[in-house]
């Protein structure tokens, strides 16, 4: 009886190990996210392991390889390479749910047709306050002529904006090193951890703290200070900085666009950007028109809720077209 139980246990352990290998192989194609490390040059909070295969099938389907610089970019980058247009932003612009050749950076690069070198350092969790925090360093490292910052929301906590201005915005930690890194390299284990045990992960928490219900005078005052700082940083480097508002547009029951923007926020961003020599490119009209006139959903994917979630390849295309028009023709 005892021998039988031990025999069964051994079989179960071996089968479990074999199943684990099979599941890791499956997750290598379904969900394999490279380990992220604190970015030593300070252009972003963190970046991924360079030259590493990644795949994402949980929202959209995308596979690719991080470049030599540790970003999910088609182009490799070596220090000193020419960068004319630098893109900064969050997971929307990072485009991890979109094939790399269809994300905004690639589309923008094709639109410029080689005239301008486009490079994206957009990373998940890098909402506007975090992009603003790292703008100076990013301009120093990449020396672009134009910096484009994606704003998926306009509702930022005045305390967070003040923290950027004061230099006290907390870092997004990277859990890399030693045994933890080894565990993260096992796709099935990483997938299970992210799915079931890390739903309040640091990146999500960092992004969440940015949203706010506060508006009005406090908001304007904090935003004014922050944009003043961004304006100074941009002028010091002779860089044209474009803030691109990517509104969340969802359809209502009648197919009309519903916007999640509080009254006055767009106007505040427009006015204060102009006062500080920044360009505020608002994609609201384009996104609303795409939904209502062309019946295009710019968010969501075939394996999630259509119309919700991250921007899809059509959304990236629209973003790139708008930025191209703004840079080339001053459209806004």
């Amino acid at each position: 009886m005892k021998a039988k139980a031990i025999n069964w246990l051994l079989k179960a352990l071996l089968a479990g190990a074999a199943a684990f290998v099979l599941l890791c192989l499956f997750c290598a194609l379904w969900y394999k996210v490279p380990v992220h490390y604190t970015n030593p040059d300070g252009a972003t909070e963190y970046k991924y392991e360079p030259n590493t295969f990644y795949s994402r099938g949980v929202e959209g389907f995308a596979m690719g390889r991080t470049n030599s610089d540790g970003f999910p970019e088609l182009l490799d980058y070596a220090p000193g390479d020419r960068v004319d247009v630098l893109l900064l932003g969050s997971s929307h612009l990072e485009g991890y749910s979109v094939p790399p050749e269809k994300n905004a950076a690639a589309v923008l690069g094709r639109l410029f047709d080689g005239e301008k070198a486009v490079y994206s350092i957009a990373m998940a969790g890098h909402t506007f306050p975090y992009c603003a925090k790292h703008l100076e360093k990013a301009l120093e490292v990449y020396r672009p002529q134009v910096a484009v910052i994606e704003l998926a929301s306009l509702s930022y906590d005045p305390a967070a904006m003040d923290a950027v201005t004061d230099g006290t915005l907390p870092d997004i930690p990277s859990h890399a090193g030693g045994f933890v890194t080894l565990l993260q390299k096992l796709p099935f284990l990483r997938h299970m951890y992210n799915k079931y045990f890390n739903r309040g992960n640091d990146v999500v928490k960092a992004a969440a703290v940015m949203e706010t219900e506060v508006s009005g005078a406090d908001f304007d005052a904090s935003l004014a200070r922050l944009l003043e700082k961004l304006g100074e940083v941009s002028r010091a480097r002779g860089v044209k900085t474009i803030l691109v508002h990517v509104p969340t547009v969802v359809p209502d029951a009648e197919g009309h666009a519903v916007l999640e923007v509080k009254p006055g926020e767009r106007e505040s961003f427009q006015r204060l950007s102009e006062e500080n020599g920044l360009v505020f490119l608002d994609l609201t009209e384009r996104f609303v028109s795409a939904l209502e006139d062309d019946h295009e959903l710019l968010f969501g994917f075939a394996n999630t809720a259509p119309g919700h979630g991250h921007i899809n390849s059509r959304g990236h295309e629209l973003f790139a077209e708008a930025v191209y028009g703004c840079i080339e023709n001053g459209e806004g």
């Binding site: 969802v250 359809p251 209502d252 029951a253 009648e254 959903l297 969501g300 999630t304 809720a305 919700h308």
Partner: peptide
């Protein structure tokens, strides 16, 4: 998630 999105905005 697909069904809920479609039913909430069928005209889209």
């Amino acid at each position: 998630s697909f069904i809920d999105a479609v039913h909430s905005a069928p005209a889209a």
